[in-house]
């Protein structure tokens, strides 16, 4: 018998013909679990810590310290949508955050031009990643480990391994410190970019092509999509976002620290995967990612204010990610 008949006779699952099971109902409800958790955190910590947690100042601090992570997470989101990993995102952010103060030191390059150059540098890194993955057909996981190492080398060579602070113009911190209507600038950057990324993914043909490439490269190609271009441009856009993240980071530090960057990589991926358990379950999505960043930061801030030891933070992050992803895996009956 050919496969024809075998396939034809395999039982067809059609969820509409029966009432949803408990698991399916839970799966449907689970998309609001993450924002629900955020609300619970805010209420619980506000009750436990009314004088320190439930203040506007605390909210500002939590949000603005997480803005760099949120931007890197959105860069990771873009590459994950097309089914690729970019493990150089942390290093890219570090490169931009070092270049900006480095270039502006002693007035060598005006700040606006230095910002553009820093972002261009990481976009160029993204182009290299994209070419390696799309044209040289190197597995993205491996290719971007390679570029991350090279960026690390460039950062060390450029900085000499020390913090660049001599001659850095003090106006640099204006990038991140000004606060119109009391809203910290980094929060505004994140909000604007999140909306742009959301429009880009959900409202443009290119965003659709990205989902198609991530879903099935073969089907995308056979539907007339230039999968190479989609891959290359996506890596470049991720580079642009990490460049912006680096600029914000430099504005917060006011100097160039060669050690900053790589430590952002894993939390960024954790936020995207955690975010995929919210709103559109099983899909990497912008608002889930942002919610995940804020929820984790709120939890950690609350625990810190309670005076818990510092190992609680990574433990909390790890447990949150594993529980959320495993639970979603179970509820959906298939991996993310």
């Amino acid at each position: 018998m050919t496969n024809t008949t075998i396939e034809r006779t395999t039982p067809v699952t059609d969820a509409t013909r029966r009432t949803p099971t408990t698991r399916e109902r839970m799966a449907a409800g689970s998309r609001f679990a993450l924002p629900g958790l955020l609300v619970v955190f805010i209420i619980v910590f506000s009750i436990l810590n009314p004088t320190t947690f439930a203040t506007l100042a605390n909210a500002r601090t939590v949000l603005s310290t997480q803005s760099v992570l949120a931007l890197v997470a959105m860069a990771a989101l873009l590459t994950l949508v097309i089914g690729e990993f970019d493990l150089s995102l942390g290093a890219q952010m570090g490169l931009s955050a070092l270049l900006l103060p480095g270039l502006t030191a002693n007035g060598a390059v005006p700040i606006p031009l230095a910002i553009v150059l820093s972002i261009l540098a990481t976009t160029l890194v993204g182009l290299c990643n994209g070419l390696l993955v799309a044209k040289a057909k190197v597995n993205s996981f491996i290719a971007t480990i390679g570029t991350a190492a090279l960026i690390g080398a460039i950062v060390l060579a450029y900085s000499g391994g020390t913090v660049i602070f001599l001659g850095v113009p003090p106006e640099l911190i204006n990038i991140s410190s000004f606060a119109p209507l009391g809203i910290p600038a980094p929060v505004i950057y994140v909000a604007v970019i999140a909306v742009l990324v959301w429009v880009f993914l959900k409202r443009t043909p290119f965003g659709r092509y990205m989902s198609a490439v991530g879903g099935s490269k073969d089907a995308a190609r056979l539907s007339g999509i230039n999968t190479d271009i989609v891959t290359i441009v996506t890596f470049m856009l991720a580079g642009t976002l990490t460049g912006i993240a680096g600029v914000v980071q430099a504005g917060q530090l006011g100097s160039g620290n060669p050690a900053v960057g790589p430590s952002f990589l894993l939390p960024a991926f954790a936020a995207v995967f955690l975010g995929a358990t919210a709103y559109q379950v099983g899909q990497f999505n912008v608002w889930g990612t942002i919610t995940a960043v804020v929820t984790l930061a709120t939890g950690v801030a609350g625990l810190n204010l309670l005076g818990l030891p510092n190992w609680v933070e990574p433990a909390f992050n790890g447990v949150a990610l594993l529980v959320a992803v495993s639970l979603t895996r179970y509820l959906r009956g298939k991996p993310l």
Partner: peptide, 8 residues
């Protein structure tokens, strides 16, 4: 594999 994108 080739005809449709199952996740979409």
């Amino acid at each position: 594999r080739d005809g449709c994108v199952l996740t979409m």
